[in-house]
Design a protein around this nucleic acid. Structure first.
Lengths: 197, 197, 197, 197
DNA sequence: GATGAATGAGACTTCATTCAT
DNA sequence: AATGAATGAAGTCTCATTCAT
């Protein structure tokens, strides 16, 4: 037998690619750089991924996979809404830190934009159901109707992604803290007004 | 007279650049294309702008200038909050349609990100003051505290920009209609609940 | 036994290579493709042939071997000139169909050209002897002297190879029919003029 | 005004390309090499020719143009068939020396093959008309019918091209001498037999 | 011996920028 | 000041060959 296709190497490439795409965006990232960061030859990247584009897609797919896996796991747990939502926030923002560098790269081409829009939709639906199933819809945005609630939720999620994507890596942790506490503070205030737990 | 000629040529370059950057993004836009669209020689672009990057910045600056000019003008008008805000929305989204293609290009480099963050801040402050000075803060996001109101406002503005930037040009008008009506609907519902006008 | 396995694998490689070189030419043929077609690993090709070039040479050598074997066999048969020559034509053109795709690859490098020149020489000598030994030299190109006859013969053979090599695969059979009938028609007409059989 | 597109530079590129394509074939020839031989930057080649393929085509077109120009000029002259044909031979072979390196490159791709086949057709027609209009058809290949005469002529022209394309550059002059004298000798001998001048 | 992943040189082409005219 | 040809660095991807397994 010859050397086997190395799952670990594949994942090292993805990691390096994630960093690089993140730091420089899709266009400015070079295969050379990714290869160097992985410690392999340029050509070897093409053993694992057919093209730069394919590599990018694989990076995004991997992250999203981890995200949905995490959501499912959280859903299986029992516990009050507050805890579930906090867990969701922690998990989601943790992952966002990792996605962060990639977000920018996703604005660029039509198909990737579509990808992103779709993901946002999924996230919003997840959160909405979380609250509605706990009979706590108003916690989200007060006594608005369903449409308005969903609209505001979508804006909120979109806003988080936007602010994240225009934040420099070194400021990211601080920014995320602010976002989290901003969200939770709003929930808390509404709970006060609405007498919800 | 020569000066006037120059200014006019400079602005023709900026116009062509705006279109091109918009259609293709920063990276894929070539100076050659911009020059051709302007009807001048490639080299001449460098008489007016030191580099592609500088040209991009100038394009953004131009748009922003028009935006703040517009805001000031609206402010000078008198009228009820509702009308002012509607005018603001109309004006802002109109401009957004024009910026739209450029937004993407602004996520890419550190300095551009900072630029964008700054602009968002300005917009939020403007809206907040618009409502607060009309004594209509709660219209925005209910009876939340000042911090939460500002946070939600920022998320809303960020969300609009995010959604806009992941929308394909051909879908843009529809998307903007949805955003506008979503915003106004929320305001309307809050007015009902709060008995505000 | 091991030896036998080897020989068989070697010849399978040659067959795949013949097809590949034929279809795509030397440059565009990849070792990977040949390996895949053979059902072995890329690296294994190098166990049997030192380089792509060497493999190409082996392919040509194999074909030529079959050609000379065929000629010898025809020579051993008895029969009138006409029949022998027709058999030669049929056999030669049959093989040519198989070589066809390779011909192109032989114009490229100096050593291969020399190879080709040499083969043409052999073919011409064979034909000339066939006719001369049957006392039918004039059939070939009329009452020309020996030198001229040989020259014309060489041109004819060269011409066949040339026309073949600029014929697209899908037109090859038609072209060969034309060449054959052109050759035979000439012989027939000369036989009429010269009263030869 | 800026530097003008330089016709002389263009032709220097073509010359360098002719040599390179000839020496190495289409595939192995690199733009880098051509640029270096011309003494310009690699990128500059693309100012004059859109692609390597386009450059190749231009090279061939240029040569063919000179060829047909030459034929027309010879046709305009008056004089006996012998002189005209000798002039044709001299001119044709002179040019062939220059084409020589390119011939190989023309066997490779379908469209180029078609090109070549077409050119051969033109040449044959020219020669045939030259002899027939001088009422000297039999000089070509004896008393054969029209079809056979044309067939043999085509084989002869094809044969010349074939032999030329498998001749190494350093042997080319010798080879051409042999081809010329072989052709002329055949004509001479037929003239003797047929009593033609 | 067989395997096929790894290598890395190198190919074509693009394009921001420069600079001779 | 305007022009646009020239530059050359750089990018993605291919592939013959090597070599660890």
């Amino acid at each position: 037998m010859a050397r086997k296709l190395d799952e670990e190497k594949r994942s090292r490439i993805i990691d390096a690619a994630k960093d690089a795409f993140g730091t420089l965006g899709f266009q400015q990232t070079t295969i050379k750089r990714i290869a160097a960061a992985t410690g392999i030859a340029q050509g070897t990247v093409y053993t694992y991924f057919g093209s730069k584009e394919e590599l990018f897609t694989a990076v995004v797919a991997g992250i999203w996979q981890r995200f949905t896996d995490g959501l499912n796991e959280i859903n299986l747990r029992s516990g009050p809404l507050t805890r579930k939502f906090t867990e969701f926030l922690d998990f989601g923002f943790d992952l966002l830190v990792q996605i962060h560098p990639l977000l920018r790269g996703m604005y660029t081409e039509a198909n990737r934009k579509e990808l992103l829009r779709e993901k946002v939709e999924v996230i919003c639906r997840y959160i909405d159901e979380l609250f509605v199933s706990a009979d706590a819809g108003p916690l989200l945005f007060g006594e608005l109707g369903e449409d308005s609630r969903r609209f505001n939720l979508n804006m909120m999620v979109s806003g988080v992604l936007f602010r994240t994507s225009i934040t420099k890596p070194e400021d990211l942790n601080g920014e995320i803290e602010q976002l989290k506490s901003g969200i939770l503070k709003g929930l808390g205030e509404r709970a006060l007004f609405g007498g919800l737990s």
